[in-house]
């Protein structure tokens, strides 16, 4: 009987510890959200979306150029990264097996684990050095390098889930393999593939480290791919570590916009994924 009580006490203690661990873990999460909403909303205004940063000391201004720059970087990173990721995944599913496919999978996993700042350094030595200048293009390449392994692996997962009977049905109709993969397999898995793409876009939308010495950032408007360009995460970074209250407020507003964008992308991805 005595043993039983000790065991029950231990049991309850263990449960309590797990609950406490969960609560401790959720506390910073809630605090981050709390500050983000409180500071973000109180600092957000229409100017944020229409103005560019004001010079030091002046109040007001916004991050319109950062929002535009980020969109442009994401667009070009996607143009570079999505075809490689998606078609690479098609290869892995259609010509599965073999040492080459295994090597590719492994490389993708390893590449996904490379710190994003290293990706930035590589894009720097591949593009910034030869072109003799920081550029939006280099930033887009750095982001696409981050995107490729993510898209490749998630797309492959989705393509693998398409039943083999569909492939057979199409081939038995005399449809060539390439049309079968692109028009039957990829189309059947499109929802899952789009989910993966949205998650990858969300991921690169928040990246700042790889942009530090590629896109560099810009206080002004730029539409030129060969010039430095502003990006929202970079602006949040430089405004947060600056010693001005006014800039901190802009950084909070930027953070709120960035988080809302990313959550929307994540939520959208999940909704699309769930419907399939």
């Amino acid at each position: 009987m005595q043993g039983m009580t000790v065991r029950h006490i231990k049991n309850h203690a263990a449960r309590a510890i797990m609950l406490i661990a969960t609560l401790i873990l959720l506390t910073p999460l809630c605090l981050i959200f709390f500050h983000l909403l409180k500071m973000g909303f109180s600092s957000l205004s229409l100017d944020f979306f229409t103005q560019i940063p004001k010079p030091t000391g002046e109040s007001g201004g916004g991050m319109a150029n950062g929002i535009f720059g980020s969109s442009l970087l994401i667009l070009f990173a996607s143009l570079l990264g999505l075809p490689i990721g998606v078609l690479g995944a098609v290869y892995l599913t259609e010509f599965n097996g073999g040492r080459f496919a295994t090597t590719i999978r492994f490389s993708a996993d390893v590449l996904a684990g490379v710190p994003s700042i290293i990706t930035g350094m590589v894009a720097y030595s591949l593009l910034v050095l030869p072109m003799k200048g920081f550029s939006a293009l280099a930033g887009a390449v750095a982001l696409s390098l981050i995107m490729i392994p993510i898209v490749l692996r998630t797309t492959e997962e989705q393509l693998k889930m398409v039943p083999g009977t569909l492939r057979e049905a199409s081939l038995a109709l005399g449809v060539p393999l390439w049309r079968t993969s692109l028009k039957v397999i990829l189309v059947s898995a499109r929802k899952g593939v789009i989910t993966g793409i949205l998650l990858a876009v969300a991921r690169i939308a928040g990246e700042s480290a790889p942009l530090l010495f590629t896109a560099l950032g810009n206080q002004f408007w730029s539409r030129n791919l060969t010039e430095p360009i502003a990006a929202l995460p970079l602006q949040i970074f430089s405004f947060a570590i600056a010693p001005y209250e006014e800039w901190h407020r802009l950084a909070w507003a930027g953070a709120l916009v960035l988080v809302v964008t990313m959550f929307t992308l994540n939520l959208g991805a999940r909704l699309i994924g769930r419907r399939s």
């Binding site: 039943p163 009977t165 569909l166 057979e168 049905a169 199409s170 038995a172 039957v184 059947s188």
Partner: peptide, 10 residues
Amino acid sequence: VFQKPNPFPA
């Protein structure tokens, strides 16, 4: 024609 009906779902 296959064992299980396999129309293209999309």
